[in-house]
Computed example of a mutant assay.
Amino acid sequence: MQRRPHCGGATRTWPMLIVAAVTACSTMPKDFETPKFGIADIAPKDVAVFEQRFDVQLRIQNPNNFDLGINGIRFQIDLNEKEFGNGMSGQAVTIPRFSSEMITAEVITGLGGFLRQMQEMSASATKLRYRLKGKAFAQAPSNFTIPFDESGEIDFNLAPPAEK
């Protein structure tokens, strides 16, 4: 009968080391400020009966004193408090400290959301409220997720103000 060496202590140590390594790699850097995410442009890509695809340009502003590497983003766009579509991008970008960069993402919307938005926009609305919420996946200076929830308003009333 062959006897195996006892490795009980080593067996318990490995899981703790793995947890410590994952935790160390997935935490936000000290003094991290959440970047600002905004919609810069929306352009139709493919309009079909049941599904519409749009290319959306997102601006990411880095308020931190270090470069921020992002290797993916997942988000939802609401227009006038109604869900418009969901988007994602695997585009990798490094945003220099105190700077901004653009990424392009694909947004997919269904027929109902698309028709609802077209109806509201054709009702002579001059302002469009949007909400952009989701997660960005950082890869530098360490691996962690960045939740975001931004909102804004686009004013389509381009007429000059009336003189008094």
Results as ranks from 00 to 15, higher is better:
residue 64 N to L: 04
residue 89 S to N: 13
residue 14 W to T: 04
residue 103 I to F: 11
residue 108 I to P: 01
residue 45 K to L: 14
residue 89 S to F: 10
residue 12 R to S: 00
residue 69 G to F: 08
residue 34 T to R: 04
residue 112 G to C: 02
residue 103 I to H: 09
residue 48 A to L: 07
residue 22 V to A: 01
residue 17 L to Y: 01
residue 107 V to S: 05
residue 99 S to H: 13
residue 73 I to R: 03
residue 146 I to H: 06
residue 97 R to C: 07
residue 26 S to N: 12
residue 82 K to I: 03
residue 92 A to P: 03
residue 129 R to T: 06
residue 147 P to W: 06
residue 11 T to E: 07
residue 55 D to F: 04
residue 128 L to M: 15
residue 6 H to R: 04
residue 71 N to Q: 11
residue 70 I to E: 07
residue 37 F to Q: 08
residue 89 S to V: 04
residue 44 P to W: 11
residue 79 L to Y: 15
residue 74 R to M: 10
residue 107 V to K: 08
residue 50 F to T: 03
residue 38 G to P: 00
residue 141 P to I: 02
residue 70 I to A: 05
residue 109 T to H: 11
residue 49 V to I: 06
residue 161 P to R: 11
residue 8 G to N: 01
residue 132 L to F: 06
residue 136 A to T: 03
residue 95 I to C: 10
residue 113 G to D: 11
residue 114 F to K: 05
residue 158 L to Q: 13
residue 91 Q to K: 14
residue 86 N to Y: 15
residue 125 A to I: 02
residue 54 F to R: 04
residue 8 G to T: 00
residue 12 R to V: 00
residue 132 L to Q: 10
residue 105 A to T: 08
residue 5 P to I: 05
residue 37 F to T: 05
residue 105 A to H: 11
residue 136 A to I: 03
residue 160 P to Q: 11
residue 23 T to H: 04
residue 113 G to A: 06
residue 106 E to H: 04
residue 162 A to V: 03
residue 26 S to T: 08
residue 146 I to W: 13
residue 42 I to R: 10
residue 108 I to K: 12
residue 17 L to W: 00
residue 8 G to I: 00
residue 112 G to T: 10
residue 83 E to K: 10
residue 131 R to W: 08
residue 33 E to C: 03
residue 65 N to M: 05
residue 103 I to R: 08
residue 45 K to P: 00
residue 146 I to F: 12
residue 1 M to Y: 11
residue 105 A to W: 12
residue 83 E to V: 07
residue 161 P to C: 04
residue 106 E to T: 14
residue 132 L to Y: 10
residue 58 L to W: 03
residue 131 R to N: 13
residue 20 A to W: 01
residue 1 M to W: 09
residue 57 Q to M: 06
residue 125 A to D: 13
residue 112 G to F: 13
residue 22 V to Y: 01
residue 36 K to G: 06
residue 8 G to Y: 00
residue 49 V to F: 14
residue 117 Q to K: 05
residue 74 R to E: 15
residue 92 A to L: 09
residue 94 T to V: 15
residue 89 S to C: 10
residue 150 E to I: 00
residue 72 G to T: 05
residue 28 M to E: 15
residue 59 R to I: 12
residue 38 G to V: 02
residue 153 E to K: 05
residue 92 A to F: 11
residue 58 L to N: 07
residue 131 R to V: 03
residue 115 L to E: 13
residue 113 G to T: 09
residue 34 T to W: 01
residue 100 S to R: 12
residue 34 T to A: 11
residue 152 G to L: 08
residue 109 T to Q: 11
residue 114 F to I: 02
residue 39 I to K: 06
residue 64 N to Q: 12
residue 131 R to C: 02
residue 16 M to P: 01
residue 151 S to Q: 15
residue 71 N to K: 08
residue 44 P to G: 03
residue 37 F to P: 02
residue 90 G to T: 10
residue 87 G to E: 14
residue 97 R to K: 15
residue 157 N to W: 14
residue 158 L to H: 10
residue 152 G to Y: 12
residue 150 E to S: 11
